[in-house]
Design a protein around this nucleic acid. Structure first.
Lengths: 171, 171
DNA sequence: CCGAAAATGAAAACAGTTTTCGTAATCCAG
DNA sequence: CTGGATTACGAAAACTGTTTTCATTTTCGG
């Protein structure tokens, strides 16, 4: 088990590296560099977790209130296309975007009480999936595993639970 | 590995059993039996696989063309509430409904070439998930595992592949 | 049968996302 | 540097799948 550290420090160098990689991507595609896109990606890469479009737009608006949904959506699509960001859907109807992770691939545990999303990775799990696919003559391109439930001992979670205040969100 | 037989015969008795179970549910909830609902559930339970609302409505309209989306949606919600049917989302934006399966719980392999959806169940996989959750003090209520890829030897799939005709659908 | 309760169907509302369209910014060629 | 084709922008409209509304019809226990 390799649980992903939740409160890893934000590495400013890593952020700059990603900004540069995106600039590269933009140039390779013959697109233009714009103030708005820069604002959006700079904001996005300095957030952590699984960001919804609305969350991102709110942050972005604090820098430049004139930026609207359309540009945020368009920029996120570019980020996904550039492979710097992954789109995820946990079943509550909103797309979420994930730009940082300590491991290349990981799965998710979603607490239905507090809404927290944990990332994890386990090689045995991956291997087992591969062997099941093999048995069925199936070739896996990618997969998605989500465990929905409750974290048993997280403070935040227990607090909300006590208030009967469950996180609607996920599915 | 317990692969779910794909072309199991449709057991008319099983269908009647489910219709009866739904009738029970309706009565227990103090709701009313209607011609439209009967048409919808009879049609649904005689289809197999992962049915979208549109697919179901198309079938239903062949019996009674006056039935519209609203009633189909409402009936599907009741079916889900009655636990006779499960709602699934594979990331293409449409809900799909599943009314039959040989095993209680199962996971899915989705072929991105031909769009086919296979069901499978593996106890080791389930156990491994449980132990990973345990390690992280997480209690699983339910989970979802989807393997996206290609079936290597299905005729239908290979045929479409040859035509470069991939199934848009899933994610 | 009566009548309260629930269900229906058409259409409007809704949420999240995408597209359109007129204007503005970018940036390469000259 | 600029001119001008190209790309991006922002506001608003359009779109998609789903839910709700509302006037009307149907169900079913008394």
């Amino acid at each position: 088990m390799v649980p992903v550290k939740k409160f890893r420090e934000l590495d400013e160098n890593l952020v700059r590296q990603k900004e540069a990689a995106f600039a590269d991507f933009i140039q390779r595609k013959g697109l233009k560099t714009t103030r708005q896109r820069n604002t959006i990606i700079a904001t996005f890469f300095r957030l952590r977790g699984h960001i919804s479009v609305e969350e991102l737009l709110n942050q972005v608006k604090q820098v430049n209130p004139r930026i609207g949904y359309a540009t945020v959506y368009r920029t996120l699509h570019l980020l996904v296309e550039s492979a710097l960001v992954e789109e995820r859907r946990f079943g509550d109807g909103l797309a979420r975007y994930e730009g940082h992770s300590d491991v290349e691939h990981h799965d998710h545990m979603i607490c239905l009480e507090c809404g927290e999303i944990f990332e994890f990775f386990n090689p045995r799990l991956e291997a087992l999936q591969e062997s099941l696919a093999e048995e069925n003559n199936f070739q896996i391109f990618r997969h998605r595993l989500e465990l929905y439930g409750a974290c048993k001992d997280k403070d935040a979670c227990q607090k909300r639970k006590a208030r009967g205040n469950t996180a609607a969100g996920a599915e």
